[in-house]
Design a protein around this nucleic acid. Structure first.
Lengths: 145, 145
DNA sequence: ATATACTCTACTATGTTAATAGAGATTATA
DNA sequence: TATAATCTCTATTAACATAGTAGAGTATAT
């Protein structure tokens, strides 16, 4: 798994929408809050829409909002959709001719293991969990003042 | 972690040298056995040499051989040296300005976890282990005949 | 000497990533 | 209905990484 900027931005965008679940958020607000180039974020959001993670409303008072509750979205789903398969090497998902050689691709099963271990983590973290974490940390800051 | 062809070839090369531990192997033999472009493999082997994984002997009857015993080399060491850090995103090792924002980079600790889980696997697999696996599988085939 | 084999540097083609640009479509509201 | 705000879609580009190729140079056994 390699997380690109696009994937990173997508996760931050979904997190922001999760933090604002119930209201509608413009790309502009989002872009300034999560510090991402506006035009790039536009594309990321269109992708997230195609993936069924977010919905949008056009026109004045338009914007984006989550298509499901934060509890129903995991970071694994998002990162897979935006950045592709979790596995560290293509041979784990595809045919990969290299596996026909003498060594019978002894490495393949290792990459499968790595993929599983990674999935174990990212598929069990929902945005609800992350929202709670963020809120707990910001509350903690408030109490310190 | 993303494993490139170079990393894949490096692992196969080390495995081949491990299977032939004790003897010296030419790039040519290696290239034909592990099915890798000769000139590309040359470079990979030079890198592996810089990394201290292999040694070489020039001239006639020259070739490559492991610098340490297969038991002393893990696939984690090799892959890190050839393909860079295990972590799925740069922010885990570097500064990464994105972490200064409101959300305090809630994702960062997840990537650290993923990196740890991956390391757990790849740092505990030595080439001795792989050699045993390969030999067991080829023996099994022999018995079947 | 010479053949064999490693060493080193440079080059190139291809693809991906990150970002920018701009015209178009939709909708609330004055 | 005009208009401003907002999402939608396609194209383009600069920079970088990857995968592979090329060729001249150096070392060594015989």
């Amino acid at each position: 798994m390699k997380i690109t900027y696009k994937g990173d931005y997508a996760l931050k965008a979904v997190l922001d929408l999760a933090l604002n679940y119930g209201s509608i958020v413009t790309i502009h607000e989002l872009a300034s809050r999560i510090q991402v180039p506006f035009k790039f974020l536009e594309q990321v959001l269109l992708d997230l829409k195609k993936g069924g993670f977010v919905e949008s409303k056009r026109g004045k008072i338009g914007g984006y909002f989550l298509a499901k509750s934060p509890a129903e979205i995991t970071i694994g789903e998002v990162i897979r959709f935006i950045d592709g398969p979790i596995e560290p090497i293509a041979c784990v998902e595809k045919g990969y001719s290299g596996c026909t050689d003498l060594y019978k691709c002894v490495f393949r099963k290792i990459w499968v293991d790595v993929g599983r271990a990674t999935s174990e983590i990212v598929d069990n973290i929902t945005f609800e969990k992350l929202v709670n974490e963020v809120q707990a940390s910001t509350e903690a800051v408030v109490y310190q003042i």
